[in-house]
Each structure stands twice: as structure tokens, then as C-alpha cells.
Design a protein around this nucleic acid. Structure first.
Length: 236
DNA sequence: TCCATGCACAC
DNA sequence: CAGGATGCG
DNA sequence: GTGTGCATGGACCGCATCCTG
């Protein structure tokens, strides 16, 4: 299989980053596949330039329950065999959190997992989403598919994965139940690809912008690339 | 996230 | 239609 | 009285949308 480079980015508004030079950035960075989360836009709100970037096919999934909310996208050089927009469960598909692109060599799953901070209901929704996702991915593996899963998981797994573990042990994003679900997920033979190559602390993917936490690297590692066991050997 | 505040406790 | 308020993260 | 630990509350930024005048 030829070498491919896949990137993942929670953009917090694709129209906002377009104004800050996103298209030039993508053409310079030149990945084979780019996965975006929190695009906060429906395709019909997007400009022609954003829909058709030179050399890429694009696929969007957007929320049908709330305008300007959630949303994910894939930009891909190679056209997938098939693209889907959910697990087949309306409750989880309707917020525009899922894009699945099937290629000959693997299935790419780009997900913006729910945030559980708002209230108890949303935390439960997040946990239910996790379970539905695990069901979905396990079924694909059982069918012999090789999975590459990426996105904003909204949970740090271990103490090493955030700067303030003690202070956040009762905050959604580092709750015992959320961390235990990740334990369970990995016990089904999926791998956290970053940790295949790096076991150092202070490697984060998200920082609170309210407190300018990035300046001090007070962050969390909540964005991941996972692979199923049958694809592990392909990860470089 | 960080700071201020209030409260309980130990020494 | 600019600007403030709100929802969400 | 002073130190430490824990709990609570408020300000804080950015994007997109909605409301108001």
C-alpha cells in the first residue's frame, strides 16, 4: 500500500478559518486526507471555493437539529468507494458528527464525539454515543474491515493526558466513567496511535482559550487517531 | 483555568 | 443591517 | 494564629445565530 498522510483538526467554524487562509494552508500542507470537526455549517452555507478545493473531493455531514452546530468534513485526494454519514441511528446521526469513507485498503471514520460538559443529559448522550460507536466499529471489524478512526473524542484517557488531572477528576472530559469507556474501547483491540510512538507527558491537543491556557501549555489530549488491530502494522 | 472567598480541620 | 445577547464549547 | 485542603462562584475567548431597534 502506498504511503498516505492523514490529518485531523477541530476547526471551530470552517467559514471562520476560510477567512484566515485555510485553503492555502491545505494546499501547502498537502495531506492525502484531511478530517475536520466542528465545521459549524451546512454545505449550502459554504462557498464554491470551500466545496471544491483543487485536487480534493469533499464530503460533509452537518447537524439537522441545530444550525451552526457541530458538523464534520473530509477532504480527500482519492475518491472513496463509499461514503456514509452515521451509524444508522438517527439520534446519533442527526447532529452531524460522523463521516465514514471506505477505501480499498481501510475504512476511515471521522467523528466529533459529543461534549458532556453542559449537563447530565448531554453526558449521558455522550456515553450512549460512545457505546453506539463501539458497536458500529466492532461490526465493521467482524466483517474484516480495517479501521482508521480519528477526531475529537472529548475525553483524556490517563493522568498523563492532561495538565491538571486532580483538578479535573470531577469534570466531564476526565470523569472515571469516560476514562473507563476508553479502557473498554482499547480492550477491544484498538490502538491509540500517538502512544505507539510517544509516551511523554505534556503532549496535548486542546487548550482552554478563555484562560489562554495554550501560552502555558495547560492542555488536554482529547483528539486521537485510533486503528483496529488488523491495521496497526501499517501505521508509521 | 484561575483567582478570591469561605469553611473545616490540624497543629 | 449593526450591535448586543445567547448558546455552546 | 497559621498552614493546608476542599467547595463555590465569577470572569474569561471565539464562532455562529438570533433578537432588537
Amino acid at each position: 500500500m502506498k504511503k498516505m498522510r492523514i490529518l485531523s483538526w477541530n476547526v471551530n467554524g470552517i467559514r471562520a478559518i476560510q477567512k484566515k487562509g485555510f485553503i492555502d494552508w491545505l494546499l501547502t500542507e498537502d495531506p492525502d486526507i484531511l478530517c475536520l470537526q466542528e465545521t459549524k455549517a451546512a454545505p449550502e452555507q459554504l462557498s464554491e471555493e470551500l466545496l471544491n478545493i483543487n485536487g480534493y473531493k469533499s464530503y460533509f455531514s452537518s447537524s439537522i437539529v441545530k444550525k451552526g452546530y457541530s458538523g464534520v468534513a473530509i477532504y480527500t485526494k482519492q475518491e472513496p468507494i463509499k461514503v456514509e454519514h452515521g451509524f444508522g441511528i438517527p439520534k446519533f446521526d442527526d447532529e452531524g458528527r460522523i463521516v465514514v469513507a471506505e477505501y480499498k485498503e481501510f475504512v476511515l471514520i471521522n467523528i466529533y464525539y459529543p461534549n458532556g460538559k453542559k449537563n447530565e443529559e448531554r453526558l449521558q448522550y455522550k456515553m450512549d454515543f460512545y457505546e453506539a460507536f463501539l458497536d458500529y466499529s466492532n461490526k465493521l471489524v467482524k466483517k474484516g474491515k480495517k479501521l482508521v478512526i480519528c477526531g475529537d473524542v472529548n475525553t483524556a484517557h490517563k493522568e498523563i493526558d492532561l495538565a491538571r488531572p486532580k483538578e479535573n477528576s470531577k469534570v466531564s472530559g476526565f470523569l472515571p466513567i469516560e476514562r473507563e469507556w476508553l479502557d473498554k474501547f482499547f480492550s477491544h483491540n484498538y490502538h491509540d496511535t500517538f502512544r505507539m510512538f510517544n509516551d511523554e507527558p505534556e503532549n496535548y491537543s486542546w487548550w482552554d482559550q478563555v484562560t489562554r491556557a495554550r501560552d502555558r501549555n495547560v492542555g488536554w489530549r482529547i483528539d486521537y487517531f485510533f486503528v483496529s488491530d488488523n491495521f496497526k502494522k501499517n501505521v508509521k
